[in-house]
Design a protein around this nucleic acid. Structure first.
Lengths: 348, 348
DNA sequence: ATGAAAGCGCTAACAT
DNA sequence: ATGTTAGCGCTTTCAT
């Protein structure tokens, strides 16, 4: 039986400690620790005695105690914004998977409002995470400072960090917008519209800016603009409704949507409700290349965010920052690619 | 400056401890602890001195140290299987959100093979999580025993636990299958097919069993069966291809698909590639009611898993188990509902 | 109300 | 190679 006693009725059942194992094995407690510490020197004899006792008692190392003394938890904090978007769902999945391969576990902080980041991030620091990945939220310089002071490296994922305090891995949304402008103009489209997603997000701003800037460079203007207000299907459907049903303007012949979900909403409205022929009468281009974009039912032309590259790069940058605490701030921009499918025509 | 020094170049920047705060505030270290312990008695004077020092130093409590002494981490381990299914993505999101509301954080363990559960779960126990939620994987009785011995409550989510050792919250998949059988027979369908998902999963088995049992009860048989092998769109599309293109059997007039993604694949194949009229010539019913099922492009008739209820119930059961460690094993079955949309006809 | 002291389970010197 | 010892930062008695 374990050496200590639990105090309250709420506490967990007894666990065994290295002291219990040591007693049973007839060695010192430090010897037990060495058996569980890679690189320590233990004789084969001791190791066997210890492992026998471990097995008999069902001993399991207490990672919390180890974390306390080593000042490192092997946990990465992942801050995500509440999502309905498959892109971000897939992202959590990939982050947890790749981090696990590297021997890290993921503590998820789910925030909905920007303000909640102010509470979640200090909490992550209290848990002494070894590093932080922040998605879909912008780090204030105050928070970045707090992380820096506690020595916790942070990587912002797909969001420009305004200050120079945190690492950043980001898809080149601006360039993606430019690509769409070129694609639509090359195909000879005349009336061009944009449907925005979440207005306050840097992703939306950059995609739109790249798009309109490039249109202007080539002597065209954005003819129509509508805002979905959020990055989801229903909002995209509704925005397309406002865009395509307004009687006082001629209908656009091309729409660039700030992401795939919006584009799919617009596509369904156009085809299913309005009977508009896509792409003959109307071209629609999205952004992200979520799995559904490639489904036969959609075949959406879109800008592919190189998903695996983004995730792998983010984790690489984080690992480097963890291993070289005093290295420079790194900012990586990943270029997306245009995927031609059937929702946009390529020849006028 | 902090009292201690860090040892290696890999360690984090200096943090302040309660000792540093105590010195600066001119009180004992225990007094500082009390300020951060709800319910402790501290004078207003002491509290103010302490908080001033805390602010000046930027002190932040070390939750790891607290966890060590309190033997409780406020962390819940969430074991998920690698998913492409929006249903499970949404699930993580909801679990993390609701757990946070209850003051718990979520450590995610992402497994792909059943065998990986044997590694991930002991790891979760080493982190001394306060509780575990296991989705899309069946707990072996050996693992259930390990959790029980360490006093860590476990709830299996949407998976029948074969043994009696772990709590369980599950959608009534069997009943869902029966509902589909009734719906299709009531509508007068004659040739009825089933497309299976992941064959080894209890969800698939129960949905299929309820479906075929009910067909038989009403004097019909399952005419055709095809297996997607997995719960995703592409596999569903391919399975529907095999089912609908096989020349030697007459085409079915109704298909029950083991989940929505498979149903959407089948629907797209039927409409887009084969030009089959749905539901006039073919009825398709899915399972889950993921958001996309309600999109205008699909309007899929399906069995709705009461998502919020499932998640809330799971967390409630877990919280009860944490607060009453010696209470009985609880098994909750939640009844789903049939959602009529446009992919199945309701009158023969 | 407060300080002193013990101890949570572990790692990492330091001896031998 | 192994035992002894000193913490890691905190909570929680126990005195006062």
């Amino acid at each position: 039986m374990p050496t200590k006693k639990r105090k309250t009725s709420l506490s967990k059942a007894s666990d065994f400690s290295q002291i219990d194992v040591a007693k049973l094995a007839g060695v010192s407690q430090a010897a037990v620790s060495r058996v569980f510490t890679p690189g320590s020197s233990v004789s084969e004899d001791t190791r066997e005695k210890v492992m026998a006792a471990v097995k008999q008692l069902g001993y399991r190392p207490n990672v919390i105690a180890r974390s306390l003394v080593q000042n490192s938890t092997n946990i990465i904090g992942l801050v995500v914004k509440r999502f309905t978007n498959p892109f971000y769902a897939h992202m959590i999945q990939e982050f947890t998977r790749v981090l696990q391969e590297q021997g890290y576990w993921t503590l998820v902080f789910n925030i909905s409002e920007k303000q909640e980041l102010e509470e979640a991030l200090p909490m992550a620091l209290q848990y002494r995470v070894d590093g932080l990945i922040i998605t879909s939220a912008t780090l204030s310089s105050k928070l970045a400072d707090e992380c820096a002071r506690s020595g916790t490296p942070v990587v912002s994922f797909n969001r420009y960090a305004t200050d120079g305090h945190s690492h950043m891995v980001c898809c080149d949304n601006f360039e993606g917008g430019r690509m769409v402008a070129d694609a639509l103009l090359d195909a000879g489209h005349k009336r061009i519209a944009f449907i925005a997603g979440e207005e306050s997000s840097s992703t939306n701003r950059d995609r739109e800016m790249g798009f309109t800037k490039r249109l202007e460079e080539r002597g065209h203007a954005l003819d129509l603009r509508e805002s979905a207000g959020d990055y989801d299907y229903e909002k995209g459907y509704a925005a397309a409704e406002r865009l395509l049903l307004s009687a006082d303007t001629p209908r656009p012949d091309a729409i660039f949507c700030a992401n795939d979900l919006i584009a799919m909403g617009a596509l369904d409205l156009a085809r299913c409700k309005l009977g508009i022929k896509v792409p003959a009468e109307l071209s629609i281009i999205g952004f992200d290349d979520i799995p559904a974009a490639g489904w036969p039912g959609y075949q959406l032309t879109t800008i592919r965010q190189p998903f695996g590259t983004l995730v792998d790069t983010t984790i690489q940058v984080l690992m480097d920052a963890i291993n070289e605490p005093d290295s420079d701030i790194i900012k990586k921009i990943i270029t997306p690619t245009l995927i031609w499918r059937d929702s946009a025509r390529s020849i006028g």
